[in-house]
Amino acid sequence: MANYSTNEFKGGLKVMLDGDPCNILENEYVKPGKGQAFNRVKLRNLITGRVWERTFKSGESLEGADVMDLDMEYVYTDGDMWHFMKTDGSFEQYAVDKKAIGDVEKWLKEQAVYTVTLWNDNAIAVSPPNFLELEVVETDPGLKGDTAQGGSKPATLSSGAVVRVPLFINQGEVLKVDTRTGEYVSRA
């Protein structure tokens, strides 16, 4: 794997730091009038999700991390692992453990396409599409005619997520939901 020096650091570059793959978020070059230059770098640890702020002497380098984001279709879960399949026609499958699936568990829908982050060919993180269409499996009965008034109620979706929805939504309806905010967008 290539090494990257501080002046190649930019948002999105994946590097190894303290043994974990990290995604560089920000890189600020700082230099006193005359003297040693430094790079103030923000990185997200891709294993723990935590953001680190570190300083490097300019010109230092970090090993690149063999990290790839791939599109994969969610197939099924066996209870312990969640199984995803590449969308490139290879039918190659990857098993994702509980730690890597994290909060995304409540946004899983069969045949929807997720971004799976692989490190050394192991899945370490999954991100859902920004918008998903999911069926309401449980909510209080809808209020007829109340289409414009404010007010909301909780609804449990087929994936397990609970979102606030307008009062007129009924069980069995399919909704468009923003997975980044966990908010209702519209009827699908």
């Binding site: 930019k10 948002g11 999105g12 570059l13 994946k14 995604n23 690149g64 990290v67 790839m68 984001d69 971004t115």
Partner: peptide, 13 residues
């Protein structure tokens, strides 16, 4: 050089 392919997803490079 494939780096380019995934950094595009980040929308920053």
């Amino acid at each position: 050089h494939n780096c380019v392919a995934f950094v595009v997803l980040e929308g920053t490079v």
